[in-house]
Each structure stands twice: as C-alpha cells, then as structure tokens.
C-alpha cells in the first residue's frame, strides 16, 4: 500500500527517530555506511582501544550488507541485507558513538531492543534475497575503510528510494512479534 510509505533522510535526525513506529514503511534518501561481522569487530576493537573510528557515527545508519563485486559500469553488485542478529554483540559501543539506525534482515535480541530504547535508535528490515532489486536504489558506492576485508569492508553508499520497514522503534515495539500475533493460527502451536 504505497500511500503508507514515508520518505526519510539518512543520516536521521532525533525528531524523525522518535516519531517512527514499528511497522511503518519508509523510503530512504541519503547516506548509509555498510558494515557486517568483521568490520563490526574492528570498529568495536578501535573503540575499546580508545582509537578514532574511520567514520563519525553520529546520526548515521549502518546497512548490514556484503555486496557482490560490481561488474564494469555498475555502481555496486547485488546488495541485499544480511542477518541483523549476528551484529547484536557489538551494538552498545556503536550506539554510544551516536549510531541511530541499522538496516538488515530478521529479528534482534531483547538486549538490543532494550538498547534501542535507551539510546533512542531504530532498526529497519528490508527484503532478504531481493539483492538485485535492492541494488537499484543504490546510486553511489565508495570504499571508506578496512579494504582488506573485501566484501566486508566499510563502504559509503548513496541511496535513493531505498525501501525498508521499521522493525523496532524507540519505544520497544516489535514488528516481528506483532506479525505472529496477527497471522499465527492455533494449529501451528507446538503440542
């Protein structure tokens, strides 16, 4: 239902973050940074060592993605989301540095949901496995840090009309739990 979709900018301002509710569909315009398992590990190690980060996380949105190599002439290869929960152990130090949004697929731990309430951040999900389609909303891709990590390196993406849904908001609302409540049938109960 396209009329439900709102446009938001990345990086995200505090007012927008606080106004978003789980289940809201959005189209992003602006800048994402990519990071996944190995780059998260390095970011958190830098923070623990008191060293500067290669990116200023204030207000930023991180997209959990490891794209395929771009063909000549392409901005980026296929670029769908990876599983968000693998990044759960790294979240608090990143929220402390001002991170406001993350984009990936699948549920997150209760611990991260609580952190989002505390640090006023949101998490978005987009469609896993629709990677060639998602790549069409990425207009620019530049290498920023950890180039040796290959697909796991941090890139700066410019996105336009990038579709996602608010999975968890700053009040602790949970789109995934709501979905099961609405759509789950009695006969699927474990006996």
């Amino acid at each position: 239902m396209p009329e439900e979709i709102i446009h938001i900018k990345a990086p995200i301002d505090e007012k927008t973050v606080l106004g978003l509710r789980a289940g809201q569909k959005v189209l992003f315009d602006g800048v994402f940074y990519t990071a996944r398992d190995s780059s998260h590990k390095r970011l958190v190690e830098l923070i623990e060592q008191g060293k500067p980060l290669p990116i200023d996380l204030q207000g930023q949105v991180i997209y959990y993605v490891g794209p395929t190599p771009a063909r000549p002439g392409q901005v980026i290869g296929s670029a769908g989301p990876t599983t968000s929960s693998r990044m759960d152990p790294y979240m608090e130090p990143l929220y402390k540095k001002g991170l406001k949004g993350t984009v990936g697929k699948g549920e997150r731990s209760q611990e991260v949901i609580d952190l989002m309430k505390r640090y006023k951040a949101v998490h978005f999900s987009n469609i896993g496995g629709a990677a060639a389609l998602v790549a069409r909303s990425i207009r620019k891709c530049d290498m920023i840090a950890f180039e040796d990590l290959g697909t796991e390196a941090i890139h700066r993406l410019e996105v336009e009309d990038f579709f996602a849904i608010v999975a968890y908001d700053t009040l602790g609302n949970d789109m995934y739990k709501e979905a099961i409540k609405i759509w789950g049938k009695e006969e699927s109960r474990i006996q």
């Binding site: 099961i180 759509w183 006969e187």
Partner: peptide, 17 residues
C-alpha cells in the same frame, strides 16, 4: 507444510501465510 504456514511468520517474517 500446513503447520509451518499456519505459524504466521510469512514472507520475511513480516507476517502472512
């Protein structure tokens, strides 16, 4: 197949059949 689809998880676990 019936039971798994009765969970309501749905496409991407955003809810559905």
């Amino acid at each position: 197949f019936e039971k798994v689809n009765a969970t309501g998880v749905g496409p991407q676990a955003w809810g559905g059949r």
